[in-house]
Design a protein around this nucleic acid. Structure first.
Lengths: 64, 64
DNA sequence: ACATAATGTCAATTATATTTTACATTATGT
DNA sequence: ACATAATGTAAAATATAATTGACATTATGT
């Protein structure tokens, strides 16, 4: 399932997928795939994304 | 750095590394490596561990 | 309508998470 | 002291995250 919370948090920061990719040091396709949802990123990457978007792991990647 | 919160949460459930490994479907060494800290597990594995230990991602894997 | 930025997606390659096997060490109980 | 469960750790193999390059599509602005 898509990660719309991440997409929204990125939009709130006015960052393109490419911008965020450069900020966290991965490729644009990796960011795209994570938002698309058919993906299993590493926790370190998730943490880096959270920090750039001023969110926590629970806010972007946890679901009850 | 070691993940002592995960180690504590596992102890609180009275589970050995091997028990937890079987519950989340990975090898004991993977659990050991995560607790040891020199590791970068995938988010899906982190989520599976959290659910078995009744904790959230922030509680076990986030640091301010 | 046109130009350009942003996004979606695919195939092939590279980097690395995870497994497997194996052995050593540290607890814990009797 | 002995036995056994639990943990720490290492090397080699396998599975998969992530990269690279490329092209198509969808916004957005002028």
């Amino acid at each position: 399932m898509k990660n719309l919370r991440m997409k929204a948090a990125r939009a709130a920061k006015d960052l393109s997928q490419d911008d965020l990719a450069k900020l966290v040091g991965v490729s644009r396709q990796t960011i795209n795939s994570i938002e698309k949802g058919d993906y299993n990123p590493t926790i370190n990457l998730c943490i880096a994304i959270c920090k750039e978007l001023d969110r926590t792991l629970d806010e972007l990647f946890w679901e009850e």
